[in-house]
Design a protein around this nucleic acid. Structure first.
Length: 900
DNA sequence: TATCCGACATAAA
DNA sequence: TTTATGTCGGATA
């Protein structure tokens, strides 16, 4: 469920209730469904098993979720106040109170104390009030002041004080110092959390540190002593420990194991330290959200992004639902009437291993843990219901899921400390939720074994040794959002890492994230594991496809589900959005259907190819010569001149005014932008000129000298010796050419292309085909070709990026007869002449989906049909879908490349 | 803020 | 040497 879907769904529901299409009785259940609650769960609430209200007809009381009443009285406020004051509302951790008479609706969010008072018809406008049901805490995305943001901001203040008091520049560059500080902060966070969640006594930590001198002089020693105590069982402790220390329980679990350097405090930092404990309620923090924020505290360059993480939960769900959660709920549904089978299902949970080889502060692990615990509770609840039915009593439920089943590798020391800590925190939180449901609680202390989170470079770790299957059956689920870095963005360490993982072969053009896919695939081939990774979409497009995926498939795996490109709010940068995909990989299993998710729908398909579309395997490699019998394409002319040789209309006119003899050197330059938007641009073109002659013109000499300086600073070799020329010259002589912009918007059905004479200089933002026939122009302008482009071309964000070696050279064209060539020519001229008639409009207008003129569109459709018929000669049937076109192309491509 | 293509370092051949 | 490619992007409306 994403926000848009939720809003739509609520809108429909309200409308249907108001016009009577949906019944008022069903409203509350449909409302819950709109926010992505499981339909099985809602079913059980509806049939009364999970509804603990007395008057089940008119009210719903569902633990931890909702207390709802259909109001028959006029005083809605009185009613909701009364519900709020009921004891069980608090003890069952009800999140939302709702009353409505279907004229007005009141609601209270018990966590934030926010209230809602709207007319029923306006409910959809306020749908966001209930987003926490869908895992989106409103306080966070509205940038209000939730526990997480407040806590992180307070900690940031503390952190800055401590840093200023204890370290200078050099100290901070020292890794060991930072490590010590990282550990200190994570212990501190644990203490705050513990004293608010019954692990310690209420505010025990805060009151202990308050006993220090007000100037902070002895606080460091006190904390140091406290940490030591926390690591000792009562028999190990000194006998004469003061009460306020002796009172602390034994924490164990390794959190307080090592002695660390506790920083010194001042009057000011001591006060902040105490305020953090006294003023904030740490039980409310969400380890999943807080983790990333806490990380931002330490990495000051990320400070501005605090509170930007609200998308993380729904996005993480996009990984774990298809990977395993959906299957589990299906199992639950299937076995819902057998206690034994349900117990077996629960046991399976205890044997899982969840592994995030790029875990950061642990978001994926934490959400996975939470969701698994929630699922287990569903299983246990069902078991209880069955037992109760049968025998009138039920056995004591307990959880089999341990944090030690969770594995993480993270290269950043602080993030990895936070991940370890967050796992503990979330374990405790889930134990509390467990108590609400079952009244049983696992004691929090001493802490058991922690999650297995190490600080290391995942590309260098032997995953099999780190996350070893206990038996061949142990199911390992690999999840995460590994780092992306394109070939030009990597640092030298990352390049080395890739080199190692790919055995020094063909790794340079791959994205850094490939290392995770490859290691993951190898891991899967040797174990009972599957993976789901968020990744940049560039591994699914363009030249990377043929370099990466054959190697992955060679390990015996396949893509079992995938989310096609969508925009992901980037947490590293404020407003930048990066386009990502999510890919699930499993061992080959031909019997299992694959699922393809796009923004709005999910499709069941036979196979998923590396471009994340449905189709039989189609991996086109970079090809230097054309597959079909067509003229070669080449690159446009690349200036690489710092812009010195390029002019717009005004600049050109004024330059000619000052240097009249320069006029003969100007030529029109066609770059993608000029071509598509019908603008003019010029360049000084000296390809056939003598440098000495040029130097006679003062201004030109000056310009060339400027280019020279720029090129001397460039890493490209030999350019400075030809400062008057474009860096790459490919302009055809005595020939016309077809020009194709390399980058073009996805919002066009056809990439605009055009014919030009040699007098127009093609810019390197375009590709050209010299000596091309109108028939070829027709073929390239066909829908058939566009389907090919859509399938194999690279992307910039989601827009096309045409290329020669991948797209053009591999494009399969059947052998054409003379009459076919003639007809194609005619169709090409038709399109060109329609464009000519409309020459007041630029190509951007002519080819935008919204404004494309009818006659032009019809001419294109006519061409499309004809080209289709050429590709499908045998059958008289018309080709209907692009999928069909693509499979024809795949077939022809495979055939021609084998014959070729 | 959504749209829509740029410039050039860096890769391969 | 030549030339093709992509950029957790950037400019512009």
């Amino acid at each position: 469920m994403n926000i848009v879907q939720i809003e739509d769904s609520v809108k429909h529901l309200v409308k249907n209730v108001l016009d009577g299409t949906a019944s008022q009785k069903d409203f509350i259940y449909d409302f819950l469904l709109s926010y992505g609650h499981r339909s099985q769960s809602i079913g059980r609430v509806r049939n009364g098993e999970r509804n603990l209200a007395e008057d089940k007809e008119n009210s719903v009381f569902w633990k931890r979720q909702i207390y709802f009443k259909f109001a028959k009285q006029d005083d809605l406020h009185g009613l909701i106040d009364q519900m709020k004051n009921e004891k069980r509302t608090e003890s069952n951790k009800i999140r939302f109170l709702i009353v409505t008479d279907f004229k007005n609706l009141l609601a209270v969010d018990t966590k934030t104390q926010d209230t809602l008072d709207v007319s029923f018809s306006d409910l959809a406008k306020k749908f966001d009030f209930f987003l926490p049901w869908a895992g989106m805490e409103k306080a966070v995305y509205q940038g209000e002041n939730p526990a997480d943001v407040k806590a992180a901001e307070k900690l940031a203040k503390l952190f800055d004080e401590i840093k200023a008091d204890n370290f200078d520049e050099d100290d901070l560059n020292n890794k060991e110092n930072l490590h010590q500080l990282n550990i200190f902060l994570s212990r501190l966070l644990f203490c705050y959390f513990a004293e608010d969640t019954e692990i310690f006594k209420n505010k025990q930590f805060t009151s202990a540190i308050s006993k220090s001198n007000e100037d902070g002089s002895d606080l460091s020693a006190l904390i140091c002593r406290l940490f030591k105590v926390l690591n000792q069982s009562s028999e190990d402790r000194e006998a004469d420990l003061p009460d306020y220390l002796a009172d602390f329980p034994y924490v164990n679990g390794g959190l307080f194991k090592d002695d660390i350097q506790v920083p010194k405090f001042t009057r000011k930092s001591r006060r902040i330290l105490i305020e953090c404990g006294a003023e904030l309620d740490w039980s409310d923090i969400n380890p999943d959200i807080f983790g990333s924020m806490f990380q931002a505290v330490v990495h000051t360059e990320q400070r501005s992004t605090m509170g930007q993480h609200y998308t993380s939960v729904p996005n993480i769900m996009k990984v774990i639902e298809p990977l395993f959660l959906n299957d589990l709920y299906e199992e639950l549904e299937k076995n819902q009437d057998s206690v034994n089978k349900l117990l077996k299902l629960q046991q399976r949970l205890g044997q899982l291993k969840i592994f995030d080889p790029a875990c950061g502060s642990g978001n994926f692990l934490i959400i996975a843990y939470k969701e698994l615990r929630k699922f287990e509770m569903e299983v246990l609840k069902r078991i209880q219901e069955l037992e109760l039915e049968k025998t009138g009593q039920f056995s004591k439920p307990f959880s089999l899921i341990q944090v030690s089943q969770f594995y993480g590798i993270e290269i950043d020391d602080f993030a990895h400390e936070v991940a370890i800590l967050s796992l503990w925190l979330v374990e405790h939180q889930m134990n509390l939720a467990f108590r609400v449901e079952f009244g049983e609680i696992v004691p929090a202390l001493p802490l058991k074994i922690s999650g297995n989170v190490i600080c290391n470079n995942a590309t260098q770790v032997d995953w099999l040794k780190f996350c070893e299957p206990d038996s061949p059956d142990t199911q390992i689920l690999i999840i995460g959002n590994p780092p992306f870095a394109g070939s030009r963005k990597r640092n030298s360490q990352q390049s080395e890492d890739l080199k190692l993982v790919f055995n020094n072969k063909n790794y340079k053009l791959l994205d850094y994230v490939s290392a995770w896919f490859y290691k993951g695939a190898s891991f899967i081939s040797k174990t009972n594991a599957k993976l789901g990774f968020v990744s940049t979409n560039s591994v699914t497009q363009g030249e990377q496809v043929s370099l990466l995926w054959p190697r992955i498939f060679n390990t015996g795996v396949e893509i079992s589900w995938a989310h096609q490109s969508f925009k992901w709010k980037n947490n590293a940068k404020h407003n930048a959005a990066v386009t990502v995909v999510i890919i699930g990989i499993e061992k080959i299993n031909e019997n299992k259907s694959k699922i393809l998710y796009s923004e709005s729908l999910e499709t069941i398909v036979g196979t998923i190819n590396p471009n994340l579309t449905e189709s039989s395997e189609l991996i086109v490699s970079s090809r230097k010569k054309t597959l079909s019998n067509i003229p070669d394409m080449c690159f446009g002319n690349m200036p690489a001149d710092g812009g010195k040789l390029l002019f717009n209309e005004e600049e050109k006119t004024s330059f000619i005014q000052k240097e009249p003899l320069s006029k003969r050197y100007f030529k029109e330059l066609i770059s993608a932008r000029e071509f598509i938007n019908g603008k003019k641009r010029y360049c000084l073109w000296f390809a056939d000129e003598d440098l000495d002659d040029l130097y006679k013109l003062k201004l030109i000499r000056q310009l060339i000298e400027e280019v020279k300086i720029i090129r001397q600073n460039s890493s490209r070799p030999n350019l400075a010796s030809i400062p008057h020329l474009f860096a790459q010259i490919t302009q055809p002589k005595g020939k016309n050419y077809i020009l194709i912009p390399r980058h073009s918007s996805e919002n066009r059905d056809y990439i605009p292309m055009g014919f030009f004479s040699e007098d127009y200089i093609a810019h390197d933002s375009c590709l050209i085909i010299p000596d091309a026939s109108p028939a070829l122009f027709a073929i390239l302008n066909s829908r058939m070709h566009m389907v090919w482009v859509r399938a194999v071309a690279g992307r910039i964000k989601t827009d096309f990026r045409y290329s020669k070696d991948t797209v053009y050279n591999n494009f399969p064209i059947p052998t054409l007869t003379k009459s076919e060539l003639e007809e194609l020519s005619n169709l090409a001229f038709e399109i060109l002449s329609i464009r000519e008639n409309d020459s007041s409009k630029c190509l951007a207008d002519l080819y935008s989906k919204a404004t494309m003129p009818n006659d032009l569109r019809n001419a294109h459709i006519k061409l499309d049909k004809y080209v289709d018929s050429i590709y499908q000669k045998k059958s008289q049937k018309q080709i209907k879908s692009d999928e069909c076109r693509l499979s024809i192309l795949s077939f022809l491509y495979n055939k021609m490349s084998i014959e070729g």
